[in-house]
Design a protein around this nucleic acid. Structure first.
Lengths: 233, 233
DNA sequence: CCGCCTTCTTGAACATGTTCAAAACGTCGG
DNA sequence: CCGACGTTTTGAACATGTTCAAGAAGGCGG
């Protein structure tokens, strides 16, 4: 009765045991393909069901809404990004290269979906939606994402006050959200503008962080850290 | 044939001449009332039409989509805010008080709509949507909003490098977008958390801006200004 | 007053996300 | 193999934003 679709979020179990699991996968992969091929808006539930060779009702049995299919897509992306980033995090020490690498890597992974990402964003913006990056339901994905940025910081040559260092990953995650927002609106050739944004922001962030060592700046830094903490509470 | 609804955005002509103008107004006011009373999602076009005493098709003759009705609502809010802010901008000189006043004022004006603002935001987040704060269609409203922040800056005691001063209004507008995002997700009593956010961010922004006078910070400031400019282009 | 053109109005029809009651299927104790 | 019960599957029905072909209203030159 209760939709099982939600449970899939962290489902990494081998597909041996489950029965309908195959059908679920089939529906998902069909949906993702169609989303990619013709965008989210133009892909109807009827077509997804038809191409997957099941009935409309059956699709809803596994995914309680079109949004849930989108959610699955989101998780898929996230996982791909984490994989794509391993190499960079292992080989690079420079903070700017690590951060830039991670951000550009996200761009590459997400590129095929740029066209219909807008619709995703639309749904994500609704506070009550489980798709919202701030929602409880997407906490696992969010935490995983923040974790990547923690690795970016921790494995780098960056020297920072412990307070700031602790909050920085979350701030970088927020930065990425901003970049995503820009990206969604970016229709330049080959995402030129978003790439430029990353290439200019990364050194800027680096500069800013190094500035925090100047005595006069220390105070504001602490204020920012305090603000961030109070927001999270 | 082409929808006249769009033209209304900047339509300030007296209602004497037009014929269907009365019908248009009737539909709009009915829609706004219903949006307020039962939210955007639960208000159907059929009900709007019925309550306004016209046919569904007729509503579409004047407003080419439900979103267009929302757009009208948005403009309404914006105008209210501009009015509410006049007093503060005339009486106060302190930058923090001006900025804080404007932000809190926005909060007050928007409070009655907080509950269904989420739905509004959802639609606004879609890049292609005319409701997006970054879209071409909402440029007039956006410009008007930025203009308010320009007044905040210009009429204040703030001393800044001309470059920064020129870009600051747009940055403050962006800050407000951030606050709105927070606000939409804020379900604390009496919007306590959003108010706290404003009260903590405003002095912080002030501090930050004053920091830009420190020689070592100047460089980063210029970088930021450059980045903002390149984004706008 | 008549024909004609523009403006306005209508409601049925359409597209699509979603629901639901019923049926098919599978499994397991007997 | 039987029957009962949980799981899966079905497709028709529903709700609602949107379109469209047809008609009504209103004015205007003759």
């Amino acid at each position: 009765m209760v939709q099982k679709g939600v449970a899939t979020l962290t489902d990494v179990t081998d597909s041996a045991t489950a029965k309908g699991e195959q059908t679920r996968e089939l529906i998902l992969s069909t949906a993702l393909r169609l989303f990619r091929e013709q965008g989210y808006g133009k892909t109807t539930m009827r077509v997804i069901a038809a191409e997957a060779g099941v009935s409309v009702g059956n699709a809803y049995y596994y995914y309680s809404s079109k949004e849930h299919l989108m959610q699955a897509y989101y998780d898929h992306l996230q996982a791909q990004h984490r994989e794509a980033v391993v190499d960079i995090l292992e080989s690079e020490k420079s903070f700017t290269k690590r951060l830039g690498g991670v951000l550009h890597s996200w761009l590459e992974v997400s590129a095929p979906y740029h066209e219909f990402a807008g619709t995703f964003f639309k749904n994500a913006a609704e506070p009550k939606s489980p798709l919202s990056p701030f929602s409880e339901q997407s906490r696992p994905a969010r935490d995983a994402s923040v974790e990547v940025f923690r690795q970016v910081v921790d494995g780098s040559d960056l020297k920072l006050a412990p307070d700031l260092k602790a909050e920085l990953p979350e701030l970088l995650w927020l930065m990425q959200m901003g970049i995503v927002l820009f990206w969604v609106h970016d229709d330049s050739d080959g995402l030129r503008r978003t790439k430029a944004l990353i290439d200019r922001s990364v050194p800027l962030v680096d500069k800013l962080l190094r500035l925090t060592r100047i005595p006069g700046v220390r105070g504001v830094t602490n204020d920012i850290v305090g603000l961030v903490r109070s927001i999270k509470a």
